[in-house]
């Protein structure tokens, strides 16, 4: 039964592959996202760039706002809860959101423990910066992994670092002898059975998407070519000059990511992208990717 439930959870992620999941803060933005071809929307009160700017504690969204977005669109609706805040997750499950993002974009509620996600019928997506972190989240029941990147920056550099790190660590595992896997599991601090699985298959046991800093069709194509199976776009769309055109272009880029001529046409005339932040402009304590472990 548990195994069947997990298939149903990863099954929805399979259906979202080759697509774009967009952050939206109201029904109107959700409709723009759906009309542009988003495979799902992430309902949240403030997009990461504004959370970063406003400061204060970022919490799960008002249920009314989530319900209005569910009414406005036919595609899956995801929502975020704070790391470790299982009561917020219970509320999101009661609202029947399609995926829960236990997200570093919100202020963490627990610095030691992430949510035990196997307890829920609703699937979870979690961010990761490296393979061990991804496998710890999967061990807790995440059915989908995404790079953390650095949210709200429009700067792709951290998402690239995280995706390359995960890929490199998976490749290294597959070169090891079986008698070396327990030692590496100890060193990495990741569940042994998942280490064995990755060493055997060469890929994560759940779909692997990318988030955190994607602002252009080229960013989406870069992450897809590096192995992301879908793209989350947070601030990149609704902080740009022409959200509807940019949203549509990033959707096309997630399909035609290997076709440079098509990407050239897709990327033309979209107006300016979000301004963005260099990593050196962010104080160490403001780095969202360091939240959670």
């Amino acid at each position: 039964m548990t195994e069947n439930l997990f298939e149903v959870k990863t099954g929805l992620a399979e259906m979202l592959k080759g697509g774009v999941i967009m952050d939206v803060t109201n029904p109107k933005e959700a409709e723009i996202a759906e009309k542009a071809g988003a495979v799902a929307v992430m309902a949240l009160e403030r997009i990461p760039a504004d959370i970063r700017k406003d400061g204060g504690i970022a919490r799960a969204s008002d249920p009314n706002m989530i319900k209005e977005i569910q009414k406005a669109v036919s595609i899956p609706v995801m929502a975020k809860c704070r790391i470790g805040h299982f009561a917020e997750a219970q509320i999101l499950e009661a609202l029947e959101v399609d995926y829960i993002d236990e997200s570093e974009v919100l202020t963490p509620a627990d610095e030691s423990n992430h949510i035990w996600k196997h307890d829920f019928k609703t699937p979870f997506v979690c961010g990761a910066t490296n393979l061990a972190e991804a496998l710890r989240r999967i061990g807790e029941g995440a059915a989908l992994i995404r790079t953390k990147g650095e949210p709200g920056t429009g700067n792709i550099v951290e998402a690239v670092r995280h995706m390359r790190t995960i890929n490199m660590e998976m490749a290294q595992l597959s070169t090891l002898r079986t008698d070396e896997l327990m030692s590496i599991a100890k060193k990495m601090g990741a569940p042994f059975h998942l280490i064995v699985q990755v060493a055997e298959t060469g890929h994560l046991p759940v779909p692997n998407f990318s988030a955190g800093g994607i602002a252009t069709p080229a960013d989406a194509a870069l992450m897809m070519q590096l192995g992301a199976e879908s793209i989350f776009v947070g601030s990149g769309i609704f902080k740009s000059e022409d959200p509807a055109s940019r949203a549509k272009a990033i959707v096309q880029a997630a399909t035609f990511y290997n076709d440079p001529e098509k990407l050239a046409a897709i990327s033309a005339g979209l107006g300016s992208a979000m301004k963005g932040l260099d990593m050196s402009e962010i104080a160490p304590e403001d780095r969202m990717q360091d939240r959670g472990w």
């Binding site: 259906m15 542009a36 071809g37 988003a38 799902a40 096309q252």
Partner: peptide, 15 residues
């Protein structure tokens, strides 16, 4: 295949 039918409609028509 399976996926989101709204997304597929839009992409097939736009392309």
């Amino acid at each position: 295949p399976g996926g989101e039918s709204t997304t597929m409609t839009l992409l097939l028509e736009n392309e």
